[in-house]
Design a protein around this nucleic acid. Structure first.
Lengths: 344, 344
DNA sequence: ATGAAAGCGCTAACAT
DNA sequence: ATGTTAGCGCTTTCAT
């Protein structure tokens, strides 16, 4: 790599390294004469000088690197856009991101914190692939920020999707179309914080619309297509007067399964059955037939937000997670309820 | 962050920093007495010493960081497992990866190379989201390695999927089941190197099986579900005696569209029509009904390979890309051709 | 078996 | 307006 040092530039320009440092770092704008500045820049250019950030970091105690620890953002095809948001924000502020994927293994997390601390990153972001409550890794510095998760204990800034409002928006999409028998195809019970929050949102909308919640319309299944299909079948096998006219699915994969169940029964979407998903997974939502109306997770924006607070470009309350809105993506899977069951 | 330095450990242990350095770096195994070693370790532990990698790097001229420049691996949900492979290999050898996503923008690439060079990363990996031939970014150091792409000019180690053999494997899956009228749903003409390679493999298998290639069975479409569907429709509208009994699709998304086209015509998969995809995209291949037989891209292995040569743990020919095998993933979308057209 | 001392390449007081 | 100088925290000869 580059072998030429600042002293070489200084020699070539006939000035001291201090002068070179000042002009090249821009700090000497007013202190160094224009002529000298030009001379220095030319010399640097001519001999192909590239500053050594390691030396600078040692001196300034700032590395312009941000550590990003994740359970598996990088390795799974899901929340990658969080990285994009974080990366963009870092770049815009002249920082680099050092990424460590730990598979969610606490031992690896501890090592990651250690390695990143050793490299003296200016700050750390701790990210999860999906919204959850986590134990902070051992040794995580104050000033770190949580991305798509929040710490069970301790006080750190955090950003998570506003899953409650997402549940509201999804359900409202359905009540607005005229539905009153709306099912919620939920994730398995326990642990999944998004599941409970979306359910809250769902119930709130029903209440506002004066719809009595029917426990039979709240079913659970694995969060994949198979689970969604099984759950949807259970629902569609209900007697006609108790059967839902619309399905709010915990995620797009379950919605995909619900499509399959509807298809088996000869039900058309959205004419006979309306469906709303969650996640806006491009590979599914946009390519389903018909394209799926869904609620998007603001991954990119959350990644940006987290990086901006890590960089100190934005302040945040360390005791209350920032909830990022989840926009509805309208496509073609929602319509009015079928006439036969449109009125009660 | 940690404020305690090696001199603090030295003082606490009553030895010199040289001694501390030796024992803590393991280099003093035979030179320092066991008693002193223990004393030093205890002192370090007691006062919570954590070495400063920046200072070490300045001194040793090695940062134990590898730069990874990608067009958008991190930001799109596709080739993320390349990152996992790279990350795992780096970790196993005590290195960290500094990730920069450039969106494929040459200006950003140049900046990335510059920033990474400035940080004195020990090596760089240049990755693309899908197999392509690229112009190396300006200033890319010798010794860098190309991941999922190969340089149009210049001499660098590179790793790409063996798309030709993948095409062979996919097609053979179909001839082995007894098919003779096998269509290739290709990507649009031009540029996509994988497209041509897979086509070569396809033709080779036909030739080996003594099947005369029918130009009507080579159709092209956009590489999404819509394109696959249109291409499949064209094929399925052929007169019965010319219609294919099996479809080899450029990717899983096109296969998804082919499923839709088949469904519209009342064709069952695999009883009436066999389908093979490419990519093994979990969200699609495994969740389609029936699950799709496909060819997997060895993303994880390629990521690992690239990182290992970047780390110098593996040697590679800089003038010939390493071709990584693409395994067939057998699921349920391939069967024998329907009886009516089974024989020629 | 251990210590002294010279830097790695840069920045930032402080001088001039 | 520019130069001198003292480190940042560590590793590594070379001495002892």
């Amino acid at each position: 790599m580059a072998r030429v040092r600042m002293s070489d530039v200084a020699a070539a320009a006939g000035v001291s390294t201090a002068t070179v440092s000042m002009v090249l770092s821009g700090a000497g704008g007013d202190r160094i004469s224009a002529a000298t500045q030009a001379k220095v820049r030319e010399a640097a250019e001519a001999i192909g000088y590239a500053p050594n950030s390691v030396a600078r970091s040692l001196r300034t105690q700032r590395t312009r690197m941000i550590g990003l620890i994740s359970d598996s953002i990088a390795t799974t095809p899901f929340a990658g856009r969080m990285l994009a948001g974080a990366n963009d924000a870092a770049r815009e502020h002249g920082h680099l991101v050092v990424l460590v994927d730990t598979d969610g293994d606490p031992a690896q997390e501890r090592q990651a914190v250690e390695a990143l601390t050793g490299q003296r990153v200016d700050a750390m972001v701790y990210a999860r692939m999906w919204h959850q409550v986590v134990d902070a890794p051992a040794g995580l510095a104050e000033g770190s920020v949580f991305l798509d998760c929040r710490p069970a204990h301790g006080s750190w800034p955090a950003v998570v999707p506003d899953d409650r409002e997402g549940g509201v928006a999804a359900t409202r999409e359905l009540t607005a179309a005229g539905h009153r028998r709306i099912a919620y195809l939920d994730a398995p019970a326990g642990g999944v914080v998004a599941s409970a929050l979306r359910h809250e949102g769902y119930r709130q909308v029903l209440a506002e619309a004066g719809i009595a919640p029917d426990p039979a319309l709240h079913v659970r299944g694995e969060t994949d297509a198979g689970g969604g299909r099984a759950a949807a079948e259970e629902l569609l096998d209900l007697p006609a007067d108790r059967r839902p006219t619309a399905l709010f699915c915990f995620n797009d994969r379950m919605a995909m399964g619900a499509y399959a169940a509807a298809r088996r029964r000869g039900l058309r979407i959205p004419e006979d059955l309306s469906v709303v998903g969650y996640d806006d997974q491009q590979l599914i939502a946009a390519e389903l037939d018909p394209p799926l109306t869904t609620v998007a997770l603001p991954h990119y924006e959350m990644g940006r937000w987290a990086m901006e607070v890590a960089l100190g470009e934005r302040t945040a309350d360390p005791d209350e997670p920032h909830r990022m809105p989840c926009p509805v993506i309208r496509r073609e899977s929602v319509g009015p309820p079928p006439p036969a069951r449109a009125s009660r």
